[in-house]
Design a binder for these strands. Structure first.
Lengths: 192, 192
DNA sequence: GTCTATATTGGGATAGAC
DNA sequence: GTCTATCCCAATATAGAC
């Protein structure tokens, strides 16, 4: 066959990465398949060999982004659970700066973009939220007994903070908000 | 003249209301001027007598929605500041249910939809956020001395909670999240 | 201020060659 | 798997009549 082994898988990954960048930067509707494929240096015709529709791609990209999250990754062995949680938390609340990471958090960056999409997209979003919540709770419970309710609302605060901070056009307010949420999260999760 | 006095102003209000409903239900890109005007029982041609562009309409609708918020309204004289804040907070955290109110909170419902729009739209969003924060702080400071940082992060939690709750496809998780945030806000704002 | 008609543009998806 | 070419539809915005 004319294509090397795993060529299809590689192409698929590339489409996912290019697509996610554009979804983050422009939202679902404003991102065209044409543009995604041009960024991959392919043409639109090739798209449908990998995905059935734009919506299916969207759900897959969100799931992929959630998997790439640092929260989903392993804790470095030289850090305690508590120290690792503090590190994750402070890095999360800096992420707003112009989506510089490769896989910005879909929970914050696409929050209101997901509501109206196909069920599979909402399912990917819900699973990501549940996973983030579980990870934080598991880390927190190794050193404190903070309640499930506390973890749930802290998770919402983190996501809300990043989503809002990205949108604010007032730099001082943005910084205040991010710093306030770090402070509150540290208190609520007993990281002080 | 063939049109009654204030006809233009009435029409403008009607366009704003119909447009906002659609923006909330479908987002900016998926809302067409054609559909907005059909809902107003007018045609597309009339639109440009009232607004210069869809973006300008979007900013105006967000500003209008923020003004219509209960938070921006007057406190009933028979309620203390503390009781009124508790009432506002619990009603805010029920709002997610399918946007049943006339002017759902743009901060939560349009959070990630605003980032990429014209500066005037982001400015309207920022002003709404600052106003919500100030209102909560002013009420809270009549009976407690909670910090500005606390109020900022609580505000972000409220908005984040509603935005996320709307998106979740798991009813149990949605309810847990809303209840957890009520509980946390009550604690943080000294409303217990 | 509101209408109908239209110019212009662009996107999703498919067909069929290679 | 990837290409080019094409079908089909919808959207913003403008023109000009009433």
């Amino acid at each position: 066959m004319p294509y090397p082994k795993h060529h299809a898988a590689k192409t698929r990954e590339k489409i996912l990465a290019c697509a996610y960048k554009l979804f983050i930067a422009r939202g679902f509707d404003a991102t065209s398949i044409d543009r995604i494929m041009r960024d991959c240096q392919l043409t639109r015709g090739a798209f449908y060999a990998h995905f059935q529709s734009k919506s299916q791609l969207y759900g897959a990209a969100i799931a992929q982004a959630a998997m790439q999250s640092r929260l989903a990754g392993d804790r470095p062995t030289h850090l305690s659970e508590k120290a690792w949680l503090l590190e994750l938390l402070t890095s999360y609340l800096c992420k707003d700066t112009s989506a510089k990471t490769d896989w910005p958090c879909p929970l914050a960056f696409l929050a209101t973009d997901v509501v109206r999409r196909e069920p599979e997209v909402r399912a990917a979003y819900t699973a990501s939220f549940a996973a983030m919540n579980t990870h934080i709770r598991e880390l927190a419970q190794t050193y404190s007994n903070c309640s499930e309710a506390t973890v749930l609302s802290v998770t919402a605060m983190l996501i809300g903070t990043v989503a809002i901070a990205r949108t604010l056009d007032n730099e001082r307010l943005r910084i205040s908000l991010l710093e306030s949420s770090v402070q509150t999260a540290v208190m609520q999760l007993g990281l002080a």
